[in-house]
């Protein structure tokens, strides 16, 4: 699991003993590979932890580091270095996949800042504000409509009307998803550029938007399944 440490804390390189940033995969002095980083995913790429991330820079660094970690380069290295190259590759891939995806990145950054989101918190009793009544009403209603359409379709086999309403529902859910994604991006900027109060408000908003998104994502999944069946 991820450990949150100040990535600026220097540690000594195992090979040349020169102090280095604990998040870098290679020593900036002697270029030797280092054990898996202990900082956050952004630091692995030497990037500032931002929601509005420079994706080109991420891509560049990912490819550059992937090349440097290639097993061929460690054919004659020590066993420890071989082991680290594999562990670093796994870390690099996890970090890249998490940061590249806007939603995963948002969840990741919020978790770094103490938000209790994600599957590992699903067993906890939720903060009631996480499931506001109007959202639940809306989602329940949408689910009911979807179920009715599915049943109508089962009854009337290839009823073109039922298929049409399902397609329309799919479009509607996808539209709602896009709306959430747009709103998220607005909050990214508020979170990054605002003061403390604004930042807190934006964080709360983002948690709420991610929650809403999970409900909508399930609806899209269900309607797509029905249409494909």
């Amino acid at each position: 699991m991820l450990k949150i440490v100040d990535s600026a804390v220097p540690v000594a390189c195992w090979s040349c003993s020169v102090a280095r940033n604990a998040s870098t995969l290679f020593c900036p002095n002697c270029s030797k590979i280092q054990p898996p980083a202990t900082g956050d995913y952004f630091a692995v790429f030497g990037l500032q932890p931002r929601l509005n991330l420079d994706l080109d820079a991420l891509e560049r660094e990912f490819h550059r580091l992937s090349r440097r970690l290639h097993p061929d380069r460690f054919a004659r290295a020590s066993d420890s270095e071989k082991e680290w190259s594999l562990a670093d590759t796994a870390l690099l891939n996890d970090a890249y996949r998490t940061l590249k995806d806007p939603l995963k990145r948002t969840e990741y950054v919020l978790k770094l800042h103490g938000a209790e989101i994600g599957e590992e918190h699903s067993g906890n009793r939720q903060d009631p504000s996480r499931a506001p009544a109007d959202l639940l009403e809306e989602v329940f209603e949408l689910n009911m409509q979807l179920e009715e359409m599915r049943m109508a379709r089962q009854m009337g086999d290839d009823d073109p009307e039922a298929a049409k309403s399902l397609s329309e529902a799919k479009q509607k859910f996808e539209g709602l998803l896009e709306e959430v994604d747009r709103d998220l991006r607005v909050q990214w900027t508020a979170w990054e550029e605002g003061g403390d109060a604004q930042r807190q408000a934006a964080q709360k908003q983002m948690v709420a938007l991610l929650d809403r998104r999970r409900y909508l994502r399930n609806l899209v999944r269900d309607v797509t399944e029905t249409l494909g069946a």
Partner: peptide, 13 residues
Amino acid sequence: GLVGAPECGDVMR
């Protein structure tokens, strides 16, 4: 009672 689990997107009435 209408409740939901935001982590998995379930909703229960």
